[in-house]
Amino acid sequence: MPAVIVTGSGGGMGRAIVARLQHRGLRVAGFDRAPSPEADHSEIVDLTDAGGTAAAVSRASAALGPIDGFVSAAGHYSSIPFTDVTDAEAAGMLDVHLGAFFRVAQALLPGMIEREHGSIVAVASELAVGGGERDSHYAAAKGAVLGAVRSLAAEVAPAGVRVNAVAPGPTDTPMLPSDSPWRDPEYLRALPTRALASPDEVARCVEFLICSGTFVTGETLHPNSGAVI
Rank of each mutant, 00 (worst) to 15 (best):
P66K: 07
A16W: 13
H76V: 03
G14Y: 10
T214N: 00
G25K: 08
S58D: 13
I67S: 03
G218Q: 00
H76P: 00
D49P: 07
F31W: 11
P37D: 01
L47S: 02
S9H: 08
A141L: 15
G25Y: 05
V71W: 09
V129L: 15
A88D: 13
P177L: 00
F215R: 03
H97E: 00
D84N: 12
V6E: 12
R204D: 15
L108W: 06
H137L: 09
A74R: 02
P168H: 03
E116A: 12
D135A: 14
H222Q: 03
V216P: 01
P199S: 05
L21E: 13
G30N: 05
P199T: 08
A73D: 00
V18Y: 06
S212P: 00
G132E: 12
F70H: 14
G169P: 00
G143R: 08
L26K: 01
D200T: 15
A148L: 15
T53L: 10
V104I: 05
E201A: 15
I67Q: 04
C205M: 07
A39H: 10
G69D: 07
G12R: 12
T217G: 01
S136P: 06
G75V: 01
E43A: 11
L47D: 03
A203D: 12
E201Y: 11
P37F: 04
A90C: 06
G14C: 11
E133F: 12
M93H: 07
E207K: 01
V57P: 05
A60W: 07
A91H: 06
R20Q: 15
G99V: 01
S125C: 05
A140C: 13
D49Y: 09
D40L: 11
A124D: 04
E201M: 07
E89D: 10
S125D: 02
G69K: 07
L109C: 05
